[in-house]
Design a binder for these strands. Structure first.
Lengths: 344, 344
DNA sequence: CTGTTAGCGCTTTCAG
DNA sequence: CTGAAAGCGCTAACAG
């Protein structure tokens, strides 16, 4: 497929002027006669000239591209974040290149390396759950490549970060469950390698404590993953015991959906016998039966804010680096899978 | 943020050799003494040298980036396609840049233009529903920029295309509904500006015809959009009449979910009184109550195949262009929202 | 086996 | 107001 993109030199040759003049005319340089400017712009549009950004990049040492690394683009959560990032960066003339780690450290590493080679202007990353070693991120910092971490924390690395306050979300959820009359609240947790799962667990524990309810280890089940099937399996362990919980706080909506399914299969009523609360507020959460009470996260905002912070860092000239850590607050959305609060 | 990425010239200076020798050493050129090669590679790794792909791009007139334009990254359907595209292109050293049209022609136009400026090696596009004028795509073809259209058709433009056979999916669904004992099958359709909606409608009509069932206009409702709310509204119009359908074939799972909700609200049993079938097989379709019978689409495969075809076109040298049109086949997934077939 | 040169497309001094 | 020249980082003839 041979194609010849027309260049500034083509225009210059055609008009019998120098490439530099064409360049100036096109970039609205003041010192250009209006005639030549007109001639140039006219020819340019006629020939459908498009500036070669590659050449500019090389010259300016800037690519106007941002690398985004996420575990899974298929999830509503991360794709919404991307939308936020894009809505911030596109109007500024930046393009996004995407990498999916699939929760794998090796893939993440590879992505980071190609992003570095491509010379992206900055990187936004939600680290994979499999990422224990963060040397690849430290390298970026040393290379002074602007980096912001979002959603999941990497304690060892000191850069700009944007999170949702998972702790608060979990606390709100469990505290509400207790106030709605539940006293035996179980938790279906996520892998403790992920900071978000840990913080949600902590919110759960503290809400129990605040309400004077002792923690019962048998009411805490760690799921293998975040699928409904994982939720089903986990809740079945809970249901197989004599002493049943009267509420389940799940680490994610997906897990909660699986849990609801198993509870209904076991012939129990939601929320009559067991209340269920999830986390995320996924797209269809209000359309399940019963509709799912859950914790909404400001995902789009998280994308926007991460992008804004990164952009600032990219433009920054001064050297003394003070990392910024921003936290956004989630909100409890009460629906049909849990009991209403006493109107008192 | 000042950073100095080390270059091939830096290495050359350090080792008192010429840049070209360094270049050759790094690219495993045969005519290089093993000593210099060793010295170069060692220094390169020590200094953490990363080739500047921008420079290479300029030289080779190739960016190793692919532009992908989709209406909405947030949908499970399109994000799965992206995964397919990525899984094909990443191993080949290509990066993806993403554009979301939000179903708007203007946005699509803007995206296409920036992609052209960035000099992507090829473009994959699922046209926006708002795109009636396709001059921007024609321009790409004229500029000899490899282009493949997927998911939604643009009849006027003659390039490689990859689709799912929507007609077949719809036909299978409706034919099955009739064989399961339904005779009054309604259709909740999508905007007829979108080729997929039209083809699904046609499959519905032909399945009725094949089974000798007359088409009843009052059983066809076009939804305003693809949300559950749209499905709810549409099905309510159906339920407000005297003569009720005994089955509903919805243009998408999302619409079907809204429809199911409204039907249950109206106190009717699914599938006892009304069967419901959707289209897409979204992530949670088996977790609704009842679980949703639907038409599964080979989304990941569609992404992969589109990517493969684009890659071929990019590598192609010869000029005589024969567009390829590929069709993938969907499959009916029978679940709880419809009646089982008589086992005969 | 290695150095020199030119050039990818563009901007930007420095001279007219 | 315009042109010539240099250079961003790299590769690829062309000479040695």
């Amino acid at each position: 497929m041979t194609k010849h993109n027309i260049t500034i030199t083509d225009l210059a040759r055609e008009l019998h002027i120098s490439p530099s003049t064409v360049s100036r005319a096109l970039s609205n340089h003041p010192a250009i006669s209006s005639e030549t400017r007109k001639a140039v712009t006219e020819l340019a549009t006629r020939l459908n000239y498009k500036p070669n950004l590659q050449a500019l990049n090389l010259l300016k040492k800037k690519t106007n591209t941002i690398g985004v690394v996420i575990p899974d683009i298929t999830s509503y959560f991360y794709s919404s974040i991307i939308t936020g990032i894009q809505d911030f960066f596109n109007p500024l003339g930046y393009n996004l290149i995407l990498g999916q780690s699939n929760e794998s450290y090796e893939e993440e590493l590879k992505i980071i390396h190609t992003f570095a080679s491509v010379r992206v202007d900055g990187i936004l990353i939600a680290p994979a759950s499999g990422t224990m070693n963060v040397n690849h991120l430290k390298e970026l910092v040393e290379a002074r490549l602007p980096l912001v971490i979002f959603d999941r924390d990497c304690e060892e690395i000191n850069v700009d970060k944007v999170f949702v306050n998972e702790y608060s979300g979990a606390f709100q959820a469990v505290d509400y469950l207790i106030r709605s009359g539940c006293s035996k609240v179980a938790h279906l947790g996520g892998a403790t390698t992920i900071s978000t799962s840990r913080h949600r667990m902590q919110g759960y524990l503290d809400a129990l404590k605040k309400n004077g309810i002792p923690v019962r280890d048998e009411f805490i089940v760690i799921c293998d993953g975040f699928t409904p099937e994982d939720g089903t399996k986990a809740v079945q362990r809970l249901l197989s015991r004599d002493d049943l919980p009267d509420a389940v706080f799940a680490v994610s909506d997906s897990v909660a959906i699986g849990a609801m399914h198993a509870i209904k299969e076991a012939g129990m009523d939601i929320p009559g016998q067991i209340s269920v609360v999830g986390f995320d507020d996924i797209l269809y959460s209000s359309w399940f039966k019963p509709s799912l009470t859950t914790v909404w996260q400001p995902v789009y905002e998280m994308g926007m804010l991460s992008a804004r912070i990164l952009a600032k860092r990219i433009d920054e000239t001064d050297e003394n680096f003070k990392p910024r850590i921003e936290t956004l607050f989630p909100e409890l959305v009460i629906r049909g899978s849990s009991r209403p609060l006493d109107p008192n």
